[in-house]
Design a protein around this nucleic acid. Structure first.
Lengths: 186, 186
DNA sequence: TATGTTGTGGAGCAAACGCTCAACAAGTGG
DNA sequence: CCACTTGTTGAGCGTTTGCTCCACAACATA
């Protein structure tokens, strides 16, 4: 059943999404401090007052945008194939997600900074860590290696955005090193 | 030779330092967005106009503060003992520096976010990575392991500040795992 | 003491800020 | 057509922002 919805609501939801995307773009490009009613509205090509129609306060906008980007990252992580190629798949996906979407990754990182100060966002950090741990647990059973993998992946996101010169091969080699898979690279 | 200096300049330098410390405190506590002339002045218990006497713009203040915290972290890293206990020393120092100085670590992390957008701060990130790599290179010769160690340590700072539940033993075990030292923990 | 240098801080301006509001357009159901 | 709901918007309020300015205090040199 296609669930006949109000045409007005449908368009409204689209504008809501546009605002969310614009917010992520602003955060990733200019940082959290640059998120203002005017800046987001300009990025979304919407009148400034639209912001406060869809979100009670600017803070709610930011929170919603960050939950949104977390959702997408975790969905991507969870969708990765299991089995033999799991390690390479994680390496490829991680490198891909930082190469093509630098802005989103930067926004995601700013979420964490914010989450350390906002009690309400703490849950999002836990979700991220749990998702990452699940992915790491597919590569090894050694709990210590899992810890190391989670740290490596977190560190990778960090370095990729700041110094950005890691390739797939390098990351894959590191992951293999940590999991104890001493197979050499071609 | 004690280098007889102008008493006015001496007091001025002290106020400069006070402003730098206050800035780091504000950044660590409330984030980069909270750094305003009034907020920093209040934190330093100085009149607002003092800020613009010592720093041309707010941006210069922030930059100076972040270079400052980088200096201190790197000095600490470089001062770590070499030799047999190097690994444990790094683990202990890393955990210590995140436990006792959460605010400074948070400020340091914000440097990175800023550095990705500010060309002038790019050098500071390179300094940090080089320092970290030097420390890691004392633990192993395997270049792949060094990469892994740098990523792990970066990831650790990240996790320590956001989820904060890593102990010395856990970090030490991870480092040993990555360096290939399979010695069991007591 | 007189003269120059350095440090100090309150007042305040122009711009940008978060946010409210009241008027209006667009769509829905009868 | 009609009420009714929902979406949309420009004007603008009170506040805060980054930053300037200028009168003046503190100190150094002579």
């Amino acid at each position: 059943m296609p669930e006949r919805v109000d045409g007005r609501r449908r368009r409204g939801d689209r504008r809501r999404r546009t605002l969310l995307d614009a917010t992520l773009q602003v955060i990733g490009r200019d940082g959290l401090a640059a998120v203002t009613q005017r800046a987001v509205a300009a990025e979304a090509e919407l009148p400034p007052s639209a912001v406060y129609y869809y979100f009670p306060t600017l803070d709610d906008l930011v929170t919603a945008a960050l939950v949104d980007v977390n959702d997408r990252f975790l969905a991507e992580l969870a969708a990765l194939p299991d089995g033999d190629d799991a390690l390479r798949a994680i390496a490829v996906a991680t490198v891909e997600s930082t190469r093509g979407r630098r802005v989103e990754v930067l926004a995601e990182l700013e979420l964490w900074m914010l989450a350390t100060r906002r009690e309400t966002l703490r849950g999002e950090v836990d979700r991220w860590n749990a998702g990452l741990r699940d992915a790491a647990a597919r590569l090894t059973d050694d709990p210590c290696a899992i810890d190391a993998l989670v740290a490596v992946l977190n560190g990778y996101y960090w370095q990729a955005v700041t110094s950005s010169r890691f390739g797939v091969e390098q990351l894959e080699a590191i992951l293999r090193h940590v999991t104890g898979d001493r197979r050499t690279q071609d």
